[in-house]
Nucleic acid binder design. Structure first.
Lengths: 233, 233
DNA sequence: CGGTTCATCTTGTATAGACAAGTTGATTCT
DNA sequence: AGAATCAACTTGTCTATACAAGATGAACCG
């Protein structure tokens, strides 16, 4: 392990342990250089690379801070449905339909590498744009990694926001499919049988394992998913 | 403009002009340092940053080369349907249903910032996995940026591959929607009316403008789109 | 001819120093 | 008190040098 890598991992360790919180200023190049007995350029490299990764935020003349966890990796953004609706200048409202504990079906259990029948938290939430239901969010949560899930008020904070705060996600997997509206979707999205729906499956991991598995269903129409992509050259 | 930025843009200019092709070795740090009258560390920074962006590929001890355009930004991969099917160990076959010139409808013209009625190239291709039609690709092409499009044999090279070779793409925009199978899809994908389909709209740009607009339709079932995502920390 | 060694190229890491440029807060002056 | 100045700190760019580590081909030797 090279010296600048040692410094990088030291900084990451401080952040992951919660020792250095979001927005805190981290030691300056000169301070790091001194405490690690390296030259300033070596300490600098550690800070620089972490800044490129989006972990730190540097401002010339001022300081280097721990970046906000939100804006991490917005490449394929895991965007907040609430923010999305509000960005479009519409009123957002969440309707919590169900929030309880239930046993994993074999299909769901497989996503968590659990045994079928293991207990999971479950939430069914409908996200409204003005007076239209726009997304039905069915979510299964690992109770070990998010023990306080059932006590949250999801009309104020979306499940995704809450989960990010308790278990910073490190990986995600997505799958989309087109389906015909199932009874649950028909009821809560106010759509007729035979309507085409877009369903997004999302599994999120934090360092310690699968945090949650969500089925997001959008009624027919269009839903912009990938957004814009700029290539490096 | 700082010195290392000047060197970066010089290198990028050489690549974009086609002067330095994919796989060519670019000047070494010392050579660059000499020709630009800077220290090696400054030349190095230019090469390093371009390597991080994926434009160059460096191997210690050997040389620095122009990276392949394929593996650029595989974040949200614009994957080749043919490669995807072959990766899954199935036989791939393309059926060219239509390949000609046609006038832009107002909807399509808007994607190209063309006037309605302007001529465009058009292709309708069905991609088969073994004996099952898996994707119907309807594509409109900017004849100015890909003049040779109609002369290609798309049973051998996919349109996407061909377009990448003549107009290296710099940007892409995606949108997915769920639809009920339209007559065209019913016919060529061999599905019944009322089947849910996944439709991906993709617009690709090269430096000089919109290259093509595609409508990719998948019959019902599941289609993995986003794939796996790893977050920086 | 085949294999080894070695000089020479490359990139990678690290150092110490210099100056530029931006921020911040304390001091000073009005 | 309010405004201007300035010193001290930060990050950003650049230089010159040194050595480590990997790749490559030429010279050499068996």
């Amino acid at each position: 392990m090279t010296k600048y890598q040692q410094i990088k991992s030291h900084i990451l360790a401080q952040i992951e342990s919660g020792n250095w919180a979001e927005g805190d200023t981290v030691p300056s190049e000169n301070q790091l250089a001194q405490t690690f007995s390296v030259s300033r350029m070596t300490a600098r490299r550690a800070l620089q690379e972490l800044a490129e990764q989006g972990v730190l935020k540097r401002t010339q003349g001022a300081a280097t801070c721990v970046a906000s966890l939100k804006n991490q990796s917005s490449m394929l953004q895991i965007r907040n449905i609430a923010d999305e609706i509000r960005d479009r200048q519409h009123a957002y409202r969440a309707e919590v339909i169900e929030l309880d504990r239930r046993d994993a079906s074999s299909l769901i259990a497989s996503h968590f590498h659990f045994a079928s029948g293991d207990p999971l938290f479950y939430s069914l939430i409908c996200h409204w744009q003005d007076n239209t239901p726009l997304q039905l969010e069915e979510r299964f949560i690992n109770p070990v990694l998010a023990p306080g899930y059932l006590e949250q008020d999801f009309t104020r904070v979306t499940p995704h926001e809450y989960l990010c705060s308790v278990a910073p996600l490190t990986e995600a997997e997505h799958m989309v499919e087109a389906i015909l509206a199932d009874p649950l979707s028909q009821t809560h999205l106010h759509i007729k049988p035979g309507t085409a729906c877009l369903r997004l499956h999302r599994t999120t991991w934090c360092r310690d394992g699968v945090v949650s598995h969500a089925r997001l269903t959008h009624p027919g129409g269009k839903y912009q998913l990938g957004g814009h992509l700029t290539f490096p050259r």
